[in-house]
Design a binder for these strands. Structure first.
Lengths: 218, 218
DNA sequence: GTCTATATGTCGATAGAC
DNA sequence: GTCTATCGACATATAGAC
């Protein structure tokens, strides 16, 4: 179960697949270092040393240090959007699942996503750069938080129409569900960072689902 | 109402008041810079330039760069503990207030705290250094999150004994209340950083209190 | 696309005069 | 407790040979 996946090949910042092995390796090494010491705390020297090339060679693959981070963020955004329900799925999901199945399925999707070591590292980079990098802020607040709340809110709304949920402000309800989830995910990421057990956090996530369903359905 | 306070004088890392004007000014300038570009992103040169002294003079006040951050964190911890209900207050608070008054009073305490510009900047430093500084992690997760949940949980428990709340897991309830609050506070801090309006966030905080009270009392 | 060599700048910290 | 002057390390990035 603790089988940990890794992204093998990345996309470049224009979302074209990277076939060059060295370029892929640069990204792997950079992700590893950035996630541990932050973008500013990592030098081109350290990256190229671990890749096994000289500093000047790196500039054949990336124009500058910032383009490496750009590429990492582009890959992250592609992956993170995959775990959200798409607009086309609203109808079928709201019809075929009850509220508990839906929430637990969503959580499981996320757990699968975060079991990918590369993804978990990029999550840390995002947190790390929130205050110093506008791109990280945009991904976190607009893509992760707001888009998630909005998409799930649309499903809640459809469930209300189908009588599966009492009528109320669907977006607000989605926010109430997700804010604790985002906090706990952050906690989860930090515990993983320190190699500690995440069992408590996983239990709290489960408790939260229970609390939420109880609060929402009576 | 938008009168913004500032901490005038700091404590040194052993919590003794700092009377030296230059040393206080170094801390003010350092807080300002660290909060904008992170600890690593700020040089001693930049700090001393804005203080109006030479680099070598700074070392008469602090042994090294890290001791500046140490001092900032020590001051923050002192201030942040002040907004939590103390163990002695549990009894009287649980007796004299109902759940809504208590939550709104707590929120108001926090808003007062964060209206202090210095404090808000140090909040940003804490967020910024969460992944790279163990001290920041400890303050955030142990002092801010866990201690808050625990103290408020104790008050919830006492309210349950007094019949002001239905009996249930008090600590879990406190966590359910606080996780959205922490998320929204983080959002609030980022909006302030970008000079944007925090009205939506304040409304969501209010909505959350309403949702929580409704969920808890029926 | 890799290398050697180097340009140019910034960093934290110290020595020692006043 | 302020200053001038400086050290040694490390940063990003480029030129040009192969």
């Amino acid at each position: 179960m603790d089988y940990e996946k890794e992204l093998e090949n990345f996309l470049d910042k224009d979302l074209q697949p990277i076939t060059n092995g060295t370029k892929n390796k640069i990204l792997h090494v950079a992700i590893d270092h950035f996630s541990q010491r932050g973008y500013r705390g990592v030098s081109i020297r350290q990256i190229t040393r671990d890749v096994g090339i000289k500093e000047s060679s790196l500039y054949k693959h990336f124009q500058n240090k910032d383009e490496i981070l750009d590429t990492i963020f582009a890959n992250f955004e592609v992956e993170v959007v995959k775990i959200l329900p798409s607009s086309e799925q609203i109808e079928v999901v709201a019809t075929s699942m009850d509220i508990r199945d839906f929430l637990e399925r969503g959580l499981q999707n996320f757990v699968n996503h975060i079991e990918n070591v590369s993804m978990r590292k990029i999550w840390r980079i995002i947190y790390n750069e929130l205050f110093s990098d506008q791109r990280a802020r945009t991904i976190y607040f607009e893509t992760i938080i707001n888009l998630t709340i909005e998409r799930v809110g649309a499903i809640f709304e459809q469930m209300m129409r189908l009588g599966k949920l009492p009528r109320q402000d669907a977006r607000m309800l989605s926010a109430e569900y997700h804010y604790p989830v985002f906090s706990l995910i952050m906690e989860y990421n930090f515990l993983k960072l320190e190699g500690k057990s995440t069992k408590d956090t996983e239990k709290r996530l489960q408790d939260h689902i229970d609390f939420f369903i109880k609060a929402v359905t009576n």
